[in-house]
Amino acid sequence: MNAIATSSLSKSFAGLEAVRDVTLEVGEGEVFGLIGPNGAGKTTLIRLLCGLYTPTAGHGTVLGWDIAREQAHIRERVGYMSQSNGLYADLSVDENIRLYADLYGVRDPDWIARVRHWLALQDVGRQVVADLPTGVRQRAALAAVLAHRPRLMVLDEPTSGVDLVAREAMWDLLGEIARGGVTVVVTTHVMAEARRCDRLALIAEGRLVATGAPAELIRRSGVVIAVVDASPWDEAFVRVQSLWPAATLFGTRTHIPVARGEVVEPRVREVLAHVAVRSVTWREPSMEDAFIALVSAAR
């Protein structure tokens, strides 16, 4: 069964279409990533799915309930973590978890114990949130979101401001939570992390540009990266950029995103006729390269 299914979903604010004609499905127990530039409509879409907005057109169901007519049921079973994490900084971890469980009228000590164990919070339960390192604070925020036993968790940039070690642990956790039967929808700006999702939806200007597993989106972007090693590197970069404006520098090497199968090397060598070209090699695009290619193709 699908945790989420939408069909031609749209939402406008004062004539401005923030979400346009979005049709997507998210399976139960998936870690599903929403990616897109700022202002693409990700937060609006999330709020529609959480039953916080009513759609202007189209329809959808979340956990089997209609997002326009059965919002109260949805809100009961969905845990939403906004970018500001929603914890009370002057309360302890345990007090926060209890508060969230109480707000939903749910008292299930076995579940709370399981959540605390999942998130490795047993030893910090009495500590005040404000005193915790960012990584632990984010785990506590996840626990608060899970406190009322939601079947769907919606997380808006949960790893923003979290350091690289804690971030990695956070993604491991999200996988574990999903395997435990809670569907996870998550937004992120960090493409190296988006790769950790089972599937992704790329949204730009309110529209769904592409959905699929990360590797599939990379393949569908149709780009490949030509890596030019030349000396002097700065001159080489400027010359290459005059032909390929999307070229970027990685150290002293120029990376050129080009269409897969495009014959590039003779043109590179021609534009760099007065520069010593040591090598032109190829590498697979990163998730970020794919993101940029797909977004610019959609514009």
Binding site: G36, P37, H189, M191, F237, L249, F291, I292, V295
Partner: peptide, 16 residues
């Protein structure tokens, strides 16, 4: 930190 991938790449063009 917290900047979307398109803006991040623009920022890197400036750094370059």
């Amino acid at each position: 930190t917290g900047v979307d991938p398109v803006s991040r790449r623009e920022f890197w063009h400036l750094l370059d």
